[in-house]
Design a protein around this nucleic acid. Structure first.
Lengths: 109, 109
DNA sequence: CTAATACATCGTAATATTGCGATACATAAT
DNA sequence: ATTATGTATCGCAATATTACGATGTATTAG
């Protein structure tokens, strides 16, 4: 085996899993933090900021982009990446829904 | 290669990545939803709820437990799992911090 | 046109994840 | 002690991830 049984789960569960998976790596967390911090979209600056090879950064950016979390537009020679506001809000809402369901309950064991 | 360069990143980034990774699977999202929904801790009920083998569920539970998100206590023959309130709050705060930093900014590209 | 710059993609090696059957283990009932 | 029940762990096969050097591609500068 070795492949996730997506057909067993709901669209929502699969979608949330994909987005969380995209974020579930320290390098990609660092990338997102940089993008948010710099506000203006950064690009190859990331290669210098983080201690990873250019190919590796590019691959991480691709994964974030595939998940829809970031978007990139060509800006001359370089590429400008920034948060996709729509998806970001979607993720935020999914997660806050998740956490709010728990808050109401008391915990056992 | 093939292993994450944790030493490059901060404790916080690595910790958040570990927790998100634990959640980044539809089966584990479904498990967490069930645990929260049932409030009272469930156990092997999950095997029937989700369409996965007992060994697989047990493995997913272990991963959530290793990340600290859930905790299990032996209750007779069965095991009672529930959310770890401390870690859950920690994760919630880390994430809300993440999202709040973005809200303040305007988006480009 | 040519060179330089900034990224993307390919190919590859090392390692991790996913899922499950088989089996071990621990507690409860008989 | 024996059996039944509920979980955990082992071992395996299939696949995915991570990282990077090498190379391809597109835009700008000269």
């Amino acid at each position: 085996m070795g492949l996730t049984k997506t057909e067993i789960f709901t669209e929502e569960q699969n979608r949330l899993a994909v987005m969380l998976k995209a974020m579930a790596h320290p390098a990609r967390i660092a990338i997102l933090q940089q993008i948010i911090k710099a506000n203006a979209c950064i690009c190859g600056d990331l290669v210098e900021e983080l201690g990873l090879a250019q190919a590796t950064i590019s691959q991480h950016l691709k994964e974030l982009k595939t998940a829809g979390i970031i978007q990139g537009t060509i800006e001359g020679v370089s590429v400008c990446y920034c948060i996709n506001p729509t998806v970001w809000k979607e993720l935020q809402q999914q997660l806050s829904g998740f956490f709010s369901t728990y808050e109401l309950k008391t915990n056992c064991c």
